[in-house]
Design a protein around this nucleic acid. Sequence first.
DNA 1: GAGGTCACATTGTCCGGACATTGCCGGGCA
DNA 2: TGCCCGGCAATGTCCGGACAATGTGACCTC
Lengths: 257, 257
Amino acid sequence: MGKRDAHATGAESPIQFSVDRSSPVPLYFQLSQQLEAAIENGRLAPGSLLGNEIELAGRLGLSRPTVRQAIQSLVDKGLLVRRRGIGTQVVHSQVKRPLELSSLYDDLEAAGQKPATRVLLNTTTVADAEVAAALGIAEGAEVALVERLRFAHGEPVAHLRNHLPAGLLTLQTAELEETGLYRLMRAAGITLHSARQAVGARAATADEGKRLEEPEGAPLLTMQRTTFDDTGRAVEFGSHVYRASRYAFEFQLLVRP
Amino acid sequence: MGKRDAHATGAESPIQFSVDRSSPVPLYFQLSQQLEAAIENGRLAPGSLLGNEIELAGRLGLSRPTVRQAIQSLVDKGLLVRRRGIGTQVVHSQVKRPLELSSLYDDLEAAGQKPATRVLLNTTTVADAEVAAALGIAEGAEVALVERLRFAHGEPVAHLRNHLPAGLLTLQTAELEETGLYRLMRAAGITLHSARQAVGARAATADEGKRLEEPEGAPLLTMQRTTFDDTGRAVEFGSHVYRASRYAFEFQLLVRP
DNA sequence: GAGGTCACATTGTCCGGACATTGCCGGGCA
DNA sequence: TGCCCGGCAATGTCCGGACAATGTGACCTC
């Protein structure tokens, strides 16, 4: 054969992708979804080359920028790696879901544990110094306050206290017992964008121990989180306490290049 | 005036950007850095519009795709928000450094605390089941093992135990006392790409208490982390214990759109 | 046989344009 | 006065091409 097989990667049964130009879904998005699915179910093996962009574009009847846009989105997700002069290949390891702004409710549900919630408090109050600073509002301003106990398998897992700016949305206690706070906020049209978190640990006080069915002095995991929407407004400040014996944070994170 | 002022945003003293075409630095990167700097130091006020892409491209003598690439990189960082039909604006809040694959050494140094390290162990051993699973190698395979105590202001902050695949790089004890593990790995040409972390809490054992100068039973923050390079290979597995009274994790994270 | 050199394949960067989609605002109409 | 509609401005998508930078492998030379 010649200097190098031009179809070195395509030789091994190239996967057939296709795009629907009549669909309102952007072409690059159609392609990236098909690529992601192929990676997810193993049809594109880890470490395998993707075949060069130009040929792929030609096969699909797309332009190279469109194909690049599709590939780039998966590179950003950490599923693909580009190597100049080499090609684009699937990362070797099993990359699980990358880091997301996780909700305890969704985490528990995904883990197969049916989460339950008991609302302890659902009212309004005035912001103290800490809450005001976190939400970027004036001290003494009105805020919504929600306190909940979260259970999994009938046992308490965490005590959640959240402050929200007044007027952002009205929280029904019945809804709060049914689902997570983030889902309610999203349903109200709030686009969550970023969050600032601090995770620490401390010993349980007597009150906390009673609430969470732990002895006084037991280690607890604490998290404070301020969540922002896409305009940068703070939309929620949470101060949560987890039973360390029942819960740990797990997440995947990518290095920003 | 007309239906709408075409220079509504440019009217308020448009910031002058400039690019150097003779520089080897990509044009879109030059622009994105200047934009980021302008946002960082407040010359581009939060909430202000950026002015339309076409006009900006014209002023700089760039094409629109190049300008879009620059803007997109800042949108990905969470500094800008695009609104179709409206324009691109700076997010309102003070977005601090986004989430990075943080190194305790760098964290402490950035906080102005001079970190110090005492190497307790720097040897090789065989992988037990946990380490083998984390690194994706065979049980019993040879691995490097490093145990360190990290100090800040002369007080112990954390006990760090790391396992690395054999042959990845040779760690000098003297180097480990001088800087952080990640810096050494990067200096050895390893491109860190992603990591899987689990953060929990537990009570200190008697041994741990002695090492970290905490009473037995004191709450400790624990973290296990497996780090991968850009090909997906696991390059490090860390099992760390922090004094909860002296350290907490802080990070910012973005919602994946 | 060992080493360096060169061509090639592939991604990286950049251009100029075209049309579609969306949100806002003003003006027209009832 | 109030509602609806059209126009406009801005981003979103897509095209086709051009040249640069880089890593690999094969070839050639010594």
